[in-house]
């Protein structure tokens, strides 16, 4: 049974590390956007995407956590998990945990810079979003790696 604990650590890490990253990332963008809004309250809609963009990592982490939780049957009757299976699930959670944590923070910085750009040139709102999406690529790759690792673990 003890493998279950290790699997739970994996699920928890995927959710909380990616979540921390997104929280810090939106922390940057939210502050930058509030600063802009104090001067130009009409920009709310235009800045929305840039503020929300670093939030996706938290979801990627959450989804992996959810898949692990479903896989070990925590929402119903827990399955018997060996220590090795538990370790495998923990390993599967790591890509999104770390890629999510760090990419969200850096995406937050990129998007905050994008918010400054949009404040000065409101017609350019979409270009910094693309830069933000470039950082996001690596969170997506982390998610995919976690997903493929996890889906192939036999329980």
């Amino acid at each position: 049974m003890s493998g279950l604990y290790i699997a739970m650590i994996g699920a928890a890490m995927a959710a909380f590390m990616a979540g921390i990253g997104s929280a810090i990332g939106i922390g940057y963008t939210g502050r930058a956007a509030s600063g802009v809004l104090s001067e130009a309250p009409d920009m709310f809609g235009r800045l929305f995407l840039l503020v929300a963009l670093p939030g996706t990592q938290g979801f990627y982490g959450f989804i992996i956590a959810l898949f692990i939780i479903l896989k070990v049957g925590l929402l119903g009757t827990p399955k018997a998990i060996t220590i090795y299976q538990g370790l495998e699930l923990l390993a599967a959670s790591l890509p999104i945990a770390f890629a999510g944590l760090l990419s969200a923070i850096h995406q937050g910085k990129v998007c905050a810079a994008g918010i400054d750009l949009t404040a000065k040139r409101p017609d350019q709102a979409m270009k910094p979003v693309i830069y933000g999406a470039m950082v996001e690529t690596y969170a997506v790759l982390g998610f995919l790696t976690s997903f493929f690792l996890m889906i192939n673990i036999k329980i």
Partner: peptide, 8 residues
């Protein structure tokens, strides 16, 4: 990946 996230 995004398709899977939506489903998740």
């Amino acid at each position: 990946a995004l398709g899977m996230v939506t489903a998740g």
